[in-house]
Design a binder for these strands. Structure first.
Lengths: 337, 337
DNA sequence: AAATGAAATGTAAACGTTTACATAAAATAG
DNA sequence: CTATTTTATGTAAACGTTTACATTTCATTT
């Protein structure tokens, strides 16, 4: 027996319109009719077809999530935050990665254009201007993660990478280090840029000289951190402290230090960014910047839902920067309690 | 201008049936008509409505994925594998966690019943019999991950936890340890059970005595590993080597060892299970069991797609056990090269 | 008691596909 | 050149909702 809205209507002697009204809490309906329908629906385990509903009303109750890749705790945390919040709103989540080889844009367009979702959360830290066009053209609201400065006319939620970097480098300066190096992230990555700028600006503000040869580029991978550290410490003019733009590279730097027989932090201090699980396990514990990723996902979803159901104006641009926090380990020179 | 199949049909002077046939590669159609339609569709950037399609044909091109939680690399790896493979088949992924507080069953039923997906991959390592009922009743095919012995009449892909445990414990025995303890996982977790049985069986087979007081229960968390280790090493009769049922607990055990001033592996050897990122970073490097999680996800999706499009018989039960591999670190007593 | 308005319900037209069945056109057979 | 098959196309009925609009019912006002 196939059981649809017709069937419910027939069995409760009302029209399908009434059933629909009951199911959607829309329009007036006599309490006793409502109860009759509701109990019958429950009894027959009736679930309205999401597709019919979507076809007719263009609501899917589904949110699209596009991430650059599906690896690491980092992205899992984002998803976790989004999922938790989505659950509160009874939204479903359609998740996809950009599958790097393909063009980000292509993935996004396909996703957005398909009509499978009511809106999307997109993270694309290496963002071309092209993407803004796509988003602007999209009928469905979009929230961007970690991918734009507040200048742009979109909705975005970001980690305050700039301040985070300043904080941790300031901490190094407070320790008395004067020669501070950095292993940067990839140039085209906006987060990496902000972290570098924070590093640069605080140095200058505090009256330290910014030296090109103290800075080296990595790609956020462990090996690139290792390699970067070898380069930095192989020179004659060695920095006393290293700020790695993320924890993976910091851990790579640890490995290099170990190979070079350098003690952390006695011979060289190392700090990171992201506060990944491993950073709390290694010895000496890594001083790093905590990044509220789960919260980021939560807020993004929350705002997106607002745009979808009209609480927030989707046309209005909005930006939020979540602030980071310092996690003090011993790798900077602080003593453990 | 709203552009749908009607519009395409009108503009190319054919009926919507023909357009549909072209778009689905179904039924005969004259090559020149096909081309005309195809180019027009591309030109107008026409994408068929997935909802209308689903409504009419009950194909959604969407796969549901239900995981117990969305945390850790472990689950991310599963998703990654599933996503990669899904991408090959042009399937979309709808992901949800069981949100522990709610009943697993409830989540699953809702997911399955909604008709949003063509099938589902479900991971629920603490599996009640109840779930089999739900799956059997479901119209859509289901693949289970890590959640059942091959006795049951379903499709499942599993890690061979039993053999993995045997391997690594055998390795400890080969090192000459006679007093081997274990920090178990939660009793109701099927994977934890298998790992324990592997431990138990190999001990007995190799002629070592199985001693209750060498075994303690944890919950797969770091802290429980820490606590378990304290208990085990606090007794008068201390084991010489510890098999932690997963790496998190092994790392917890490391911390306990450090607090007790026990050297690994000189005073006590520790091995784990799962091969998480951190296990390769810590010192001494953790000897553990590599678990092909990404591959597990890939295979599960592949098989599910087969069931969906009829290549595999959904009614037939099928089981695959992916084998694990030993990752040798120094925590077992092996020397680094 | 009639007039008015509000509340409850019903009718039917979308929404955009797929697909069984019918028909027309073209190719093949006799 | 007609009969027959094959290939190409069209028609129309699902699929299961939502919702504007129409209608009925009922309570309130005069």
């Amino acid at each position: 027996m196939k059981i649809n809205i017709q069937e419910i209507a027939r069995r409760s002697n009302v029209s399908i319109a009434t059933v629909s009204r009951v199911l959607n809490n829309k329009g007036p309906v006599k309490p006793e009719t409502r109860n009759k329908i509701l109990t019958l629906a429950k009894q027959l385990n009736y679930k309205p077809s999401p597709h019919a509903r979507a076809l007719s009303s263009r609501r899917t109750d589904t949110i699209g999530v596009i991430l650059p890749e599906l690896v690491d705790e980092y992205f899992m945390d984002i998803i976790q935050g989004i999922d938790e919040e989505a659950h509160l709103f009874n939204k479903y989540l359609m998740i996809s990665s950009s599958h790097s080889q393909r063009n980000d844009i292509e993935t996004i367009m396909e996703f957005m254009g398909s009509g499978r979702t009511d809106g999307a959360i997109i993270m694309a830290p290496s963002l071309h201007d092209e993407i803004y066009e796509v988003i602007k053209k999209s009928k469905r609201p979009v929230v961007l993660l970690n991918c734009c400065s507040s200048k742009t006319n979109v909705v975005s939620f970001n980690i305050d990478n700039y301040r985070g970097a300043r904080q941790i480098v300031a901490h190094l300066i407070d320790h008395g280090y004067r020669k501070i190096g950095m292993i940067k992230g990839p140039d085209r990555n906006i987060e990496a840029q902000a972290r570098f700028e924070g590093f640069h600006d605080i140095l200058v503000e505090r009256g330290l000289e910014y030296k090109e040869n103290y800075v080296i580029s990595g790609d956020f991978s462990l090996t690139s951190g290792n390699y970067g550290m070898l380069r930095l410490m192989g020179s004659d003019d060695k920095p006393q402290a290293i700020f790695a733009a993320n924890d993976y590279m910091a851990i790579g730097a640890y490995q290099a230090a170990r190979n070079l027989n350098l003690k952390i932090p006695e011979d060289v201090a190392i700090v990171g960014f992201d506060d990944i699980f491993t950073s709390r396990i290694i010895h000496p514990r890594l001083t790093t910047v905590h990044v509220p990723v789960v919260e980021l996902g939560r807020r993004a979803l929350n705002y997106l839902v607002g745009m979808i159901d009209g609480t927030k104006d989707p046309a209005e641009s909005y930006h939020e920067e979540l602030s980071t926090g310092l996690v003090i380990g011993e790798s900077c020179g602080c003593k453990s309690k």
